[in-house]
Design a protein around this nucleic acid. Structure first.
Lengths: 208, 208, 208, 208
DNA sequence: GATGAATGAGCCTTCATTCAT
DNA sequence: TATGAATGAAGGCTCATTCAT
């Protein structure tokens, strides 16, 4: 990559970082390009030299942050050989990531939670992202199956929902009402691990 | 209440119902007063005869729906004498409510999850609402304490978070990716009940 | 038509008149909605209560003015029984119309001359308008045929072009360099009538 | 002219050629400097190394093309000794020129026709250009006078208008509705020559 | 000389809100 | 009370132009 391109890429990163902060704090619709520009330290028009539209910028922000987060998830799970270790790894990664970049969590939550609150067009991409997220945590359940804790021929769907649900509930409480993040995550992990066998037992056979 | 006032109140309800549908479908910022008016079947200006602003309308919508929902929660919990029955009652109430009024859940989620996605000013009211929600499900844990499943002098905060987190994760998955609601709620309840003792055991002493 | 509609229609006419003046003076691209609003005596946003876009307003202006002009053309030709009288009628109508509403001629010329200078989308409508214009002056040549001045089985295309060309050249000179309109039209009419037989004689057989 | 200057002049020509194509196709206002740059094969900023503004570039384009065209006109008229030959020469030159460079005709028409469609400020230059154009075809009428077809002490103004009007009407029809150029020009020339005596007879005495 | 990047000004359009009827 | 109409205040986006490299 030439020098020019590097500089450009750097600027893109600065914009994305500023935009992440703004979008995370105000949501998509309430954020204005002028606000993002001010946060970046440039003129509004400058943003359009890097992104063709507000929506494209938003999508880039979500994709980038989510990509970084998911890469960490994958790495964390790669280093865990048992089901329990996987869950621990996932929660630890989340905690680290959340503390470093609260804004990130905010945008990602915002985006994932509310396809309908973001711009219409990128809905598909966001849904794809949700799918990617679920795929990334798949190894957790592969290990559960390998360890005999979970039958392979069951509908695992609710497990994904619950793992992410308990995980995110802690960060939501942290962001929304200022609850203790570490404690929340600890409790969430405990609940998930302790309740897992019972849930596994009630899952119906694979279907849709 | 005079006849005049009754008629007015009726109109208010019609508007709120229409607004709930619109806000639930599009979110606060993406919804326009014109859209709400069209859904109500009146002119935009008419809305201002009943609500001083878009924000006030939104707040009213959230408050009303949440109030109805919470009344149901309270009723459901009043009729349950044990911890387990309480949890069952809560989930059943939720399921019934969600199926009847998907839009309601959408707005409430939207509102609760993201103070920042709604209008800035009403944040306080929404936070108050969250507190009310938590208070409404308090009886669940009172029963757990009464049954000796939970020590009274512990920080119950994470329990509230987790109960609501598991509950809502199911409806989120239902709304966002079309997951099976009944199955999701069943799994969530199972997880919560089975994992509860373990979580209760790791809760730290009362603090904040 | 109710009173409401009448008032509305009246406002539409006021806007169209103001817009005709502005578009006629500055052309489509150089005119701004703010300028039109100022000429109308209202706020910019008000225009959007009557027209969905700048382009729609422009199209309406052109269509309306052209429609009025063509109605006059048709009427003038209906009252003329000979070829020569037709041509006289056409020129007289044009002169009257031009003096009354110079702006009209400007917009129409602008629009007709340069589909590509107006908004892209309405190009088709403008081409259709050109076709309508040509159709409106058709009777002139029907009479020429009836009087034996013109063979029916010839390509009349160049005649249309020349009749309008001589006619418009006079108004163009009037608008652009301040030439005398009456004199110009007189000369144009004289040229057309005197040269017509010669042109009719050189027209090729009907083809495309 | 040094080598350096020659190279510069060459670049100027490349830009003017590209700009002529763009302005001819889209008109002044709808053309962007970026579009011109792309057509030239250089960066937008580069254009400013050769022209101080968009307007200056437009003016240069018009002046250059018109200059080339008028030089041809002058040459054609110089080689024609009679009135009729002059008119023939003019039309032939026009036909050759138009077929070679349709874009040229487009820009020139655009510019001449509509001072208001080009940039406001250069109106004077364009008016001067119109005057130059008229001067260039002056010899046609000088010959008419010499041949006794036209009285010298009359207002020749309408003749200029009509000669150019008939000429241009053919190319307009060609450009706008795809009419046959050669046929149109033939008809136009025929009309002009055949009708000329009659017009000459009705011209008033010299005045403005 | 050439260009990528930056930007101020401006344009079209939307929308919450007000007001006269 | 209901509403059509009017509007100020943005907001997203474009573009001619400048400047540092």
């Amino acid at each position: 990559m030439g020098l020019r391109e590097r500089r450009r890429e750097h600027t893109v990163q600065l914009i994305v970082a500023a935009a992440a902060e703004v979008f995370g704090r105000r949501g998509y619709h309430a954020s204005s390009m002028e606000e993002v520009a001010k946060a970046t330290g440039c003129a509004t028009a400058t943003l359009y030299g890097y992104f063709p539209s507000k929506e494209a910028l938003f999508t880039k922000v979500v994709m980038d942050l989510m990509g970084a987060y998911l890469a960490g998830v994958t790495a964390a799970l790669a280093g865990a050989s048992t089901f329990e270790a996987s869950v621990h790894g996932l929660f630890e990664h989340f905690e680290r990531f959340a503390e470093e970049q609260a804004a990130v969590i905010r945008v990602v939550h915002t985006a994932m939670r509310t396809a309908q609150l973001g711009p219409t067009t990128s809905t598909d991409e966001i849904l794809g992202l949700i799918a990617t997220y679920r795929a990334a945590i798949g190894p957790v359940f592969d290990r559960a199956v390998a360890e005999g804790l979970l039958a392979a021929d069951r509908n695992h769907e609710p497990l994904y929902t619950l793992l992410l649900g308990t995980l995110h509930s802690a960060s939501d409480a942290w962001l929304d009402v200022g609850a203790d993040l570490r404690l929340g995550l600890h409790a969430a992990r405990t609940l998930f691990l302790a309740g897992f066998p019972a849930v596994a037992a009630v899952l119906p056979g694979e279907s849709s």
